[in-house]
Structure formats: C-alpha cells, structure tokens
Write a protein that binds this DNA or RNA. Structure first.
Length: 213
DNA sequence: TAGTATCG
DNA sequence: GACG
C-alpha cells in the first residue's frame, strides 16, 4: 500500500508504469531523440502575450509539433526556426503507443521537452489537441523529476510523485485534462544523459480521425 | 497560469 | 532552507 498510487484526485485515468523501458531501451531512445534533435534543434518557447521564456527547451517529431510563441500555443508541421518538417516518430515510441493506447488513432506529435538542471514546468493542461479522446503518453529519460498532478480544475488538490528514467505515465480518461507539471528535476539521479538533465517525450493524437469513404 | 518570484 |  505504501508505494501504490493514490487514485484521488485524478481518478483511474492516470496510469503509472514505472520501469517500462529498461536501460538498454532508454539508451536506444536517447540515441533516436538525439538524431531527431540534430534535424530539429531544441528551440526556446515563450509565453503567449508576455513573451516570457520557458525554462524548458523543446523540439518535436511526427507530422505535427507543439509550439508556443508570442501569438499562442498551436500544433504545426514545421520547426519554428528552420521551417523544416519535423523528423519521424521513432518506431519504439509507436510501439509504446500501441501497447498502452491500443485502439486510439496513431500519434501525430511527439513533443520533446529538455529540462536542463533547474528547469521546471508550471501546472497546466494539455488541451491544444482537437481530439481529446486519445490519451497523452509520457516517457521520462535521465534525471528523476518531481511530477505534480491534480484534477481538471486548477484549484483541485494535487499530489506529487517522482518520475525516474524509463517510467511511463499515461494521462487518459478522466485524467486526460488533469492539471500537471514538473516541480523540479533532481540533479545527479541518473547517468543516462552525460550532461545531466531530463528528457520528457509526450505522444499525442492531435486531429480527429477522418473516416475513409 | 505550459513563467517566475515571493511568501508563509 | 525545503516545500507548496
């Protein structure tokens, strides 16, 4: 009981899969993400309206990528700096999606968040997707993060949990629109990334499925 | 308010 | 000084 996840307040829509990827798989993923970042360099997102910089740097792979700039949040097919299309989502992540989001249409975006030591992410909802029926699937790589999750109202109570390298979190069902964020990254807790920090990969379906016909 | 500083 |  001591180590089990309390279901309140996110209900049974939050699934925590600790140790989903073993070390070897994590190393492969890091290599694949490094390749993606070589093609689509990390960019510096800023808050809409205020232009204040995020402490997290981002890139994407997949047909669509999430960006934030002075004009707002949106998904777009091109890197904001280079104008190039995003690189493909690694097969290993498509396999993960098939495993934990079976039945959902294929993911269109994989947001790559890089947390250098000291970077954080405030409490927020993932709600820029047109199709909110598919879950959001998150992979943690590198240093352990202190993750905070609440309910669908910003004022709802929150709980925190540590996300270690290789852990997977699925936000689906009544947790699909749960507020969540990263309070801090615990330096020196992983040897996966040579220079420390944390990579977080989140797979999302963005557009509704269009039926053939 | 997907930020950050500050405060209790 | 850590935490929320």
């Amino acid at each position: 009981m001591a180590s089990s996840l309390k279901l309140h307040p996110s209900g049974n829509g939050l699934r925590f899969l600790p140790g989903y990827f073993d070390r070897q798989a994590q190393e492969s993923l890091v290599g694949e993400i490094r390749q993606a970042i070589a093609q689509a360099p990390l960019f510096q997102p800023v808050m809409p309206r205020t232009g204040k910089a995020f402490s997290v740097r981002m890139s994407n792979c997949g047909p669509l990528g999430w960006v934030s700039d002075i004009d707002g949040y949106r998904y777009q097919p091109h890197h904001p700096d280079s104008g190039r299309t995003w690189p493909p989502i690694p097969q290993r992540l498509l396999d993960l999606w098939e495993d934990v989001a079976a039945g959902a249409p294929e993911p269109e975006a994989c947001l790559i968040n890089f947390y250098a030591p000291g970077a954080r992410m405030g409490l927020h909802q993932d709600r820029d997707e047109e199709d909110l029926s598919a879950p959001v699937v998150s992979v943690s790589l590198g240093d352990t993060a202190v993750f905070r999750v609440g309910g669908t109202n910003r004022k709802d109570p929150t709980t925190s949990m540590k996300l270690a390298s290789g852990d997977v979190v699925v936000l689906g069902g009544n947790a699909r629109l749960a507020f969540h964020g990263i309070d801090r990254v615990l330096a020196g807790t992983s040897t996966l990334l040579a220079n420390g920090g944390r990579l977080n990969l989140t797979l999302r379906r963005v557009t509704p499925v269009r039926q053939e016909g």
